[in-house]
Amino acid sequence: MVSQSPSPSPTAAPVRPQAAPTPDSPALSCENVNFFYGETQAIQNVTIDVPRGKVIAFIGPSGCGKSTLLRCFNRMNDFIPDSRLEGRILFHGQDLYAREVDPVQVRRRIGMVFQKPNPFPKSIYDNIAWGPLINGLVPRSGRRAWLDALVERCLRGAALWDEVKDRLGESGLALSGGQQQRLCIARAMALEPEIILMDEPCSALDPRSTQRVEDLIDELRGHYTIIIVTHNMQQAARVSDLTAFYYLGELVEYGPTDELFQRPREPRTEAYITGRFG
């Protein structure tokens, strides 16, 4: 279970909400998003609403733009020279790419888990604590107790606590690949983001570790909005509520996972999920 802390982020101002969030309003919505690497267009006019608290899978063959789109959601593509985004990505009614938006704040509120587990070469404890510390979220008095509680909560939330509670001082790199990836998920959770982006989080893991991460995603359902890019269609079918199929930068089909896998509307979706290409 994921318990929420009483007052996690006293100093964190929201990204200027322009529309009050309602339970039904989407966690994130894209309006006519195009993305270019130099002259190459990687995303073609994608419009998609991501509902709150659900697990959404992005599937499609390599190079279809699904990872690129994911990285647009927390402005990770800002670091790619000559890249350019058109259209709007709305978060709480605010365009994430508006001039006044600070990408650092976006990344604090929209967390990310990478393809290859990348814990910091620090202790397990510090892997969790560093994010809140540098973001100024830790209260001045009782820092240690606050951080201890946070570390335990996040590690429990990531189903890792029982495995590491006696060795929080050990390097995060000393863990197995699957444990490292769950540590990375715990690290993302430490900032209490509203959305967690996962870019093929299991592609570097063995089946057993994959199983544990999938179980974890299932537990996080409802507490976070999770967008997961995966090459593994069985995984998409197992963990997600909604699936979006991309092909050559276009959003081909988007709908409830069961329907998309059982009764795809588009011939291209059917061809892909039945293994005729990709």
Binding site: N74, M76, R107, G111, P121, W130, I134
Partner: peptide, 22 residues
């Protein structure tokens, strides 16, 4: 490795914090 920079940036670190701490 670039993955270390991305890890730090993804938890809301500034460029300078990423450079100095990692």
């Amino acid at each position: 490795p670039q993955s270390l920079r991305l890890a730090a940036l993804a938890v809301g670190a500034t460029r300078w914090q990423t450079t100095w701490h990692h």
